[in-house]
């Protein structure tokens, strides 16, 4: 899963994300930070909805929308391929 990421990233507890390749920084909310951490840990995209559902106790359709939205934003920001 880490191969999705175009370079090395550092994610802090506060949700501050630093891209070592471009020098750009981002601020992630709690859900974003959780998903990004799972991406860095190597979780498969298919498992992320399930992980979000269980971590935040939300319905699957809401979790799926959040994960899809987040992936779209990561692609737009060229953080993932």
């Amino acid at each position: 899963m880490d191969s999705f990421l175009h370079s090395e990233f550092t994610l802090s507890e506060s949700g501050f994300l630093f891209d070592h390749g471009t020098g750009l920084t981002y601020t992630l909310n709690e859900t974003g930070r959780f998903i990004f951490q799972k991406i860095q840990d190597g979780s498969h995209a298919n498992n992320l909805v399930e992980l979000v559902t269980s971590e935040f106790e939300v319905a699957e359709d809401i979790a799926r929308k959040d994960v899809d939205d987040f992936f779209r934003q990561l692609k737009e920001a060229r953080i993932i391929h």
Partner: peptide, 21 residues
């Protein structure tokens, strides 16, 4: 390697960050 994060009107770095690229 760096990216300039703040530049002056002359395009000179006023802030920058080091990279691994």
């Amino acid at each position: 390697p760096i990216r300039k994060t703040r530049i002056t009107d002359k395009g000179k770095a006023w802030a920058a960050i080091t990279l691994k690229n």
